[in-house]
């Protein structure tokens, strides 16, 4: 792996005109080729961070480098490396789909013929080529999302930033988008993803940063973060009706109905659970993981951050 990070953010801050500090000096590094999740609750500073990286928001302090190009001093080179899929639809709704893509390629200096080839390529890859001649406003929500992704890729950036790309998209389309993004990442494009679907981040991303109240509160690999999850809940469907007394006292078990129960176990206790179920004469039909581990960790980290914040406020209040 090359030593130059795809994205390097140092002490980045943003204070809006109304005095609201959206970012309080964050540091972040994303390596080349990574599939990186930037998570956080609403208003945490994710979109502000992305806005600053792609020059839609003016920073108050700090520095941002894209493949070592400073967004202030080498802005054309920095921007050439970047493709952005924002949260809101921000194309001209009266333009035709193909024109939007060709125009965007032109902004990056791609000659007309190449721009048209790229537009056709990405319309085909994202399965919107049959809408090429239609005005963007006539597309469905899912197709508009795909158009935004095609537009971000048309100049073939090395870093693709997606701000909630699957918001409001049905599950089938979401999964096809995941496959597409994994393919793009596999071909060498670094991807940064923000999403509220934690399942999406868990299955796609290798590294993760969690931002809350303008600060990074967690920055690690997805694997090491998920290792922190100590408890997992499973829903178990059984063949025969469950006995009146479950006999699973060692576990936190709860009957859901006559043929299913929910069990919470410590990580690594799966074998013990199956032995216990067998001893109780319960024959398992199917089992599924109920909890999203990342979701639990995410909520836990935010709560911990809130507690820490309250303690700090209390200490500062006492001092005052």
């Amino acid at each position: 792996m090359s030593s130059t990070p795809a994205l390097s953010i140092s002490n980045l801050s943003k204070v809006y005109d109304n005095g609201f500090a959206a970012l309080k000096g964050i540091d972040l590094q994303v390596e080349q080729g990574d599939f990186f999740a930037l998570l956080g609750p609403n208003g945490a500073g994710k979109s502000t961070t992305i806005g600053i990286i792609c020059s839609l928001v003016q920073k108050s302090g700090g520095s941002v480098k894209v493949f070592d190009y400073d967004i202030d001093h080498d802005f054309p080179l920095a921007k050439k490396q970047l493709g952005v899929v924002p949260q809101e639809f921000n194309f001209n709704h009266f333009e035709k789909v193909r024109d939007i893509l060709v125009t965007q390629a032109g902004y990056y200096g791609l000659p007309r013929q190449l721009a048209e080839q790229r537009a056709d390529k990405y319309m085909q890859l994202l399965d919107i080529d049959d809408k090429a001649g239609q005005q963007a406003r006539t597309l469905s929500g899912g197709m508009k999302r795909r158009l935004m992704i095609a537009r971000a890729l048309v100049h073939e950036p090395r870093l693709l930033i997606l701000d909630e790309p699957t918001a409001g998209v049905d599950i089938e389309l979401r999964r096809s988008m995941w496959e597409f993004l994994q393919r793009v990442n596999g071909e060498g494009t670094t991807i940064i993803l923000t999403t509220h679907y934690l399942e999406e981040a868990e299955s796609l991303c290798r590294n993760i940063a969690i931002i809350d109240e303008g600060k990074i509160i967690q920055n690690s690999s997805m694997r090491s973060l998920l290792r922190q999850a100590s408890l997992e809940s499973f829903v178990i469907d059984v063949q025969e009706s469950l006995p009146a007394k479950l006999g699973l006292d060692r576990f936190s078990a709860q009957r859901l109905d006559d043929h299913s129960l929910e069990v919470t176990i410590e990580k690594g206790a799966m074998n013990e659970l199956f032995i216990a179920l067998n001893e109780c004469g319960i024959h398992v039909l199917s089992l599924r993981n109920k909890t999203n581990r990342l979701e639990e960790l995410f909520v836990g980290l935010l709560e911990e951050n809130d507690r820490r914040q309250e303690q700090n406020n209390a200490v500062n209040g006492d001092a005052a």
Binding site: C54, S55, L56, F75, P76, L77, K79, K80, L82, V84, P86, E88, F89, N90, F91, N92, H93, T103, Q104, Y107, Y108, G109, R151
Partner: peptide, 18 residues
């Protein structure tokens, strides 16, 4: 103003066009 209103001006702002 239309580009500002629809936010399509962002297509230009994120691009390297001076």
């Amino acid at each position: 103003f239309g580009a500002k209103f629809q936010h399509s001006i962002e297509e230009l702002l994120v691009s390297p066009v001076p």
